[in-house]
């Protein structure tokens, strides 16, 4: 595991040597993880990488095969964990609520269970944009509305720790923007959040740190920038030469030894190591080929993610 930032001394979530086995399947295979107070922490991985299993173990929903998890000062599964749960909010992946209740009744039911003040409910519905639908039955809600209601439920009782499993599933872009605006507000209040998302581009601008999970293990942990650097992933350079320049540029690049050059329409797209970037640009300037546009693209979180996944697959073989 690549640990870029040392584990903090005090953490709100502490996962140590955790394993989960289902028969021969090792769903979670020796995970260590520390999440600091006030942090917005992202957990990414393919389906079946073990994210949701890890989430459920942190919430005490499934027992550990081995290891230890402490959340908000209590060991998961022990007596003191009930009190900790009152300060934890959880939005499950594809949240399912009760069709026969109205939005307001749903929140009131969960508020009672969490011993949260009932007068909080109406305000929370407003906050997630469900104010006008408060007295409609959940049966009539769209997928996005259900997701918002699930989110409002997670905010009951002013939690200091939020677990959000694929929270933007089913939300339209506008709603996703509003959702992250709420998260920013919560972060200012010092709420710690752990979220998973399959929309990697969405996470990369928003999390403080993230962990990449594959095959039940955390392969990388750190800030997005630190992970990019650690991976030393190649850059993408898109070059649009003037008419008739395509072949000359291609020859130029091949002369430089650029490993991967693709033609797409009237553009050449090359993937090259960061160290080669300046050489490519200088060669382009020195040759008097007309170049209409050059675009340099940093590796995205997707690239980082697939980079680690590829490494993993390489090790596996």
């Amino acid at each position: 595991m690549a640990s870029i930032i040392p584990a903090p001394a005090e953490s709100l979530v502490s996962v140590q040597g955790v394993h989960k086995r289902y028969g021969a399947v090792h769903a979670v295979d020796g995970v260590d993880l520390e999440v600091r107070p006030g942090e917005l922490f992202g957990l990414i991985g393919h389906n079946g990488a073990g994210k949701t299993t890890l989430f459920k173990m942190m919430l005490g929903l499934i027992p550990l095969s081995a290891g230890d998890i402490q959340v908000a000062g209590a060991r998961v599964g022990e007596g003191g964990f009930r009190a900790a749960r009152r300060r934890i909010g959880y939005l499950p992946e594809n949240v399912v609520l009760y069709d026969n209740l109205t939005g307001l009744e749903t929140l009131q039911f969960f508020a009672r269970l969490k011993a949260a003040p009932l007068n909080e409910c109406a305000g929370l519905l407003e906050k997630v944009g469900l104010g006008p639908a408060a007295r409609r039955r959940v049966r009539e809600y769209s997928k996005g509305m259900r997701q918002r209601l699930g989110f409002a439920q997670a905010l009951l009782g002013r939690p200091k720790l939020l677990f959000l499993d694929e929270p933007t599933n089913g939300l339209d872009p506008e709603a996703i923007r509003e959702f992250y605006a709420i998260l920013r507000g919560l972060r200012e209040e010092g709420v710690t959040m752990i979220l998973t998302s399959h929309i990697l581009a969405e996470i990369q601008e928003r999390v403080d740190r993230l962990a990449i999970m594959t095959a039940g293990r955390i392969r990388a942990l750190g800030t997005v920038q630190a992970l990019r650097e650690e991976m030393s992933l190649p850059l993408w350079i898109e070059i649009r030469p003037g008419s008739g320049g395509l072949e000359r540029v291609r020859a130029l690049l091949e002369g430089l030894g650029v490993p991967q050059v693709e033609e797409r329409g009237d553009e050449l797209i090359l993937r090259c190591p960061r160290s080669m970037k300046m050489a490519v640009l200088e060669a382009l300037t020195a040759s008097n080929v007309e170049v209409l546009d050059v675009h340099i693209r940093e590796p995205s979180l997707e690239d980082v993610f697939f980079g680690f996944s590829d490494l993993e697959a390489g090790h596996g073989n």
Partner: peptide, 14 residues
């Protein structure tokens, strides 16, 4: 089966 059990069990309830 509906998927609402996990949310219920994440509440402060045994």
């Amino acid at each position: 089966e509906r998927g609402s059990l996990d949310l219920l069990l994440s509440m402060p309830i045994t």
